[in-house]
Design a protein around this nucleic acid. Structure first.
Length: 479
RNA sequence: GGCUCCUUCGUCUAGUGGUUUAGGACGUCUGGUUCUCAUCCAGAAAAUCGCGGGUUCGAAUCCCGCAGGAGUCACCA
């Protein structure tokens, strides 16, 4: 088994097309076959500098390592189509020799005229209806067209099942453009054959071209590989396929927002595929083990960012709990608030240990942890309008905080002793947990939420914690 | 417009003629876990299986129509 991912380097990989990399990878892994990365760079006009690197970066991030392709090489290289020109010409000449391809002398203007004619007559435009009777010899500078042999075609698609189309969709497609480079339609067939690709996995937009491909395989004397058509991924609104034009994000945008590679692979693989069980969370190995083409969904699936974020939370907790804080910690690099940079990694690890189970993405660290690294701005409104605290006067609040300071001053600074101390304060102040703990939590963080109080105190440290109590006491006293 | 494909809770899906009063997950809502937020736990609402015919003792499941949606009709992939 040999599969491939064959992107054109026109930009980043977005979530709408990354499944055509994931599924071939999973299949090749499962069958102990090979997964090829081939760069389809024949469109020089749309070529984007650096796009190949962007594509490889995305694949590496997801862990979709290719067995053959750029960087790693392989027995069927080169893996850039622009470097395979001679191969395409070899096959093209074979078709010419057999009278199955011919030079197209039609100028673009004339072509346009033909199209308009058909449009006005309300009949579909087919080049073969305008096929010139005598054609000159083919040479570079002239496009080469396939001499089609239209007839009804039936084929089997591993996902879509049995498909068919009539002769009216088959035409004299261009094999080689006037710049001497092949079109996708021709190049991919030659390449897949030369490279021994057994399974062609690609998006649904190619389905209507398959009859033309079938004709080409036939003319070239090539065996048709297993055809696998993936349904589209739909955008968040409407029913249109997700595309860059409509603002589809790149896969790596999600990485930069703190989504884990494990999540992305899991989510995307399960968008439009399931193994029939009720499992939601799959490791890479589980995906490789359970993946199967015949359980790929036939209809399009909408990309649901909310579910992606839920899954990311699941993965975050799972990985941290499996690996431990220290091993996972390096992956949080780059997601901390700027104020954290002056602190030691050990301290950041302590913060991470008490906050990680509240994160949806790593990026949440930026907004959820700032009070661990700098004193919060005091905003007494948070206290005076708090539903548990507004009934108390400033004097009472000061008194509660002072009692807390006195108690905590003599408390051993670890989470268990701190919890004991907090419980004792509850009794000595005769306050309800909601009252005392709200007050302390706000005084410490002035944040909309924070981890358990004893843990927050423990990590913040005695000096910082008591200083923050005192700041709030002062502020309340002066209010 | 031609051709092709698709159609189960808001979303992702299970379901291949009877075990289905259509199951799960996300989201939503309600409770619970000494404050908050998140997690976790318990529970609820949520699909007349696109519509209409047919086959059958019986259909989400098979057949035929229809409608809606999508894709494609490039010297782009």
């Amino acid at each position: 088994m040999k599969t491939r991912f064959a992107p054109s380097p026109t930009g980043y990989i977005h979530i709408g097309n990354v499944r055509s990399a994931i599924y071939p990878y999973l299949l090749a892994q499962q069958q102990h076959g090979r997964f090829i990365l081939r760069i389809e760079d024949t469109d020089r006009a749309r070529y984007v500098e650096g796009a190949t690197e962007l594509i490889m970066d995305t694949l590496k991030w997801l862990g979709l390592d290719w067995d053959e392709g750029p960087v790693v090489g392989g027995p069927n290289g080169p893996y850039f189509q622009t470097e395979r020109k001679a191969i395409y010409h070899k096959w093209a000449n074979k078709l010419i020799a057999e009278g199955r391809a011919y030079a197209d002398p039609t100028t673009p203007d004339t072509l346009d005229k033909y199209r308009k004619e058909c449009y006005n007559k309300k009949i579909p435009f087919l080049y073969r209806n305008f096929r010139p009777s005598n054609t000159s010899e083919w040479h570079e500078g002239l496009p080469l067209r396939f001499k089609s042999d239209p007839k009804p075609r039936q084929w089997h698609d591993a996902v879509m099942g049995d498909l068919s189309a009539g002769p009216e969709v088959q035409d004299d497609i261009i094999l080689i453009k006037k710049d001497g480079l092949p079109t996708y339609n021709f190049a991919h067939i030659v390449d897949d054959a030369e490279m021994g690709v057994t399974h062609v996995i690609r998006g649904a937009e190619y389905i209507s071209s398959v009859p033309n491909y079938l004709a080409l395989y036939e003319a070239l004397g090539l065996e048709v590989p297993v055809l696998v058509t993936l349904p589209h991924i739909l955008g968040p609104t409407g029913n249109k396929k997700l595309s860059k034009r409509d603002g589809a994000k790149s896969v790596t945008d999600y990485r930069d927002e703190g989504v884990l590679a494990e999540t992305m692979l899991n989510y995307l693989a399960c968008l439009g595929w399931n193994d029939g069980t009720e499992q939601e969370i799959y490791t890479r190995d589980e995906l490789i083990k359970h993946f199967s083409l015949d359980r790929i969904q036939v209809s399009g699936a909408r990309f649901d960012e909310t579910k992606l974020l839920w899954l990311n939370g699941q993965w975050l907790r799972r990985l941290v709990e499996e690996q431990g804080i220290a091993e996972f910690y390096p992956r949080t690099e780059g997601f901390w608030p700027t104020s954290a940079s002056s602190y030691e990694p050990e301290y950041r690890q302590q913060v991470f240990a008490i906050i990680y189970d509240r994160l949806k993405t790593l990026q949440d660290l930026r907004t959820m942890t700032d009070y661990f690294f700098e004193d919060p701005t005091i905003d007494l409104k948070l206290i005076t309008t708090n539903k548990f605290l507004k009934k108390f006067s400033e004097n009472q609040l000061v008194d509660f905080l002072q009692q807390s300071v006195v108690k905590l001053q003599d408390t051993e600074w670890n989470e268990d002793s701190l919890q004991d101390a907090l419980n004792q304060l509850l009794e000595s102040t005769a306050l309800k947990p909601a009252e005392l703990f709200s007050l302390i939590r706000i005084a410490l963080s002035y944040a909309p939420f924070s981890p358990a109080l004893n843990l927050t105190l423990a990590v913040l440290g005695k000096d910082t914690s008591l200083a923050r109590f005192n700041s709030t006491i002062t502020a309340l006293a002066n209010a």
